[in-house]
Design a protein around this nucleic acid. Structure first.
Lengths: 182, 182
DNA sequence: CAATAAGCGAAGTCGTCACTTCGGATCTTA
DNA sequence: TAAGATCCGAAGTGACGACTTCGCTTATTG
């Protein structure tokens, strides 16, 4: 692959992340191209369909979160680690959830995104289990439920322009409900 | 207004509720017309823009919830009433939230929907305050946060068909976090 | 029951957006 | 450094969806 091609690919991904974050998932491919400083044809050469572009953006984002989760899985304090993870997912994912919605709306869920989501699920699972074994998280909560909660918080946060006292408070309530009963 | 016009209006609203619930917010107006058994022109005569149609559907749904909330505001047990309300909003609203997203994406938030949302907020506020005064809900939670949580849970439930057990579990966690500390 | 006003649907128009084509510019390698 | 492969952007194309027009139908009213 030529160096200019690789550079453009990188520029497109970065632009897609910005544009979809600001304009929402229905932003046009042409807007992404404009922001990246390339022609539309270049975008389509790298990502044959719009779904491919969205998928690539999502996978990149998910893998970031996976790395973060794996670090937290070996952190000294399992309880705060779980809290950190939830907060990070909500705040960093806020702009990306609309993308996931677009993907969900498509008839077929692309395998690449599904794989990345699975990796993230597993990493979150590890953090949760560790907190449960340390006795600082309810044992009757499954990853599915935690995932559901995080997804919900993230989606609600995405509606707001900036993380606010309200979203922080809501996260606090959930973390409190997640904590082991005293 | 002629009786056939009123009947058609009713049919259109019902169809819109179904279609947007099943196909998502980006479903076409023509699909709504087909489902209602009328021509597209009829839909546009009753609701000049698609936004108007979405708004009308939302207002109807919100007002249903407002009625429910007002009933619960005078229920004998304030704690379970709050739980009931949250559950009802999440489960009944699941198909409707995508509509709210579409509205939010539009440049202008129609005043009608904003008013209905305000009425709902006030009704929920009443139920929450009553639970707090009865000492069964945390006092450091505001309506804003509760609303945020419900919105998130509903959106997550709407996004993809989730097993009821999972959404119920997640709601339980939130309600637990909402309960007064022991 | 006839006149009339309101309502209705079929067949458009217009703009937008995902995706393609092709002639020219640019990087690579011998 | 020059041949040649690779990459690029400007200008399409075709489909789809929001919204309009108009001739016909149907409910209302004196």
């Amino acid at each position: 692959m030529r160096v200019d091609a690789r550079l453009n690919r990188e520029r497109i991904l970065t632009a897609a992340e910005e544009v979809f974050g600001e304009l929402g998932a229905q932003a046009s491919t042409e807007e992404v191209a404009r922001r990246a400083g390339v022609g539309v044809a270049t975008v389509f050469r790298h990502f044959p369909t719009k779904t491919d572009l969205v998928e690539a953006t999502l996978v990149r984002h998910f893998d970031d979160l996976v790395a973060h989760a794996r670090t937290l899985a070996t952190a000294p304090a399992p309880g705060p680690a779980l809290g950190d993870l939830v907060t990070a997912m909500v705040e960093r994912g806020a702009t990306k959830v609309t993308l996931a919605n677009l993907l969900g709306a498509a008839d077929q869920v692309p395998s690449g995104a599904a794989d990345a989501a699975q990796r993230l699920r597993d990493a979150v699972d590890a953090v949760l289990r560790r907190a449960q074994e340390a006795g600082v998280a309810r044992r009757d909560v499954s990853v599915d439920e935690l995932y559901f909660l995080v997804r919900g918080l993230t989606q609600a946060a995405a509606a707001l322009p900036v993380p606010t006292a309200v979203s922080r408070g809501a996260v606090a309530v959930v973390l409190d409900g997640l904590a082991a009963k005293r």
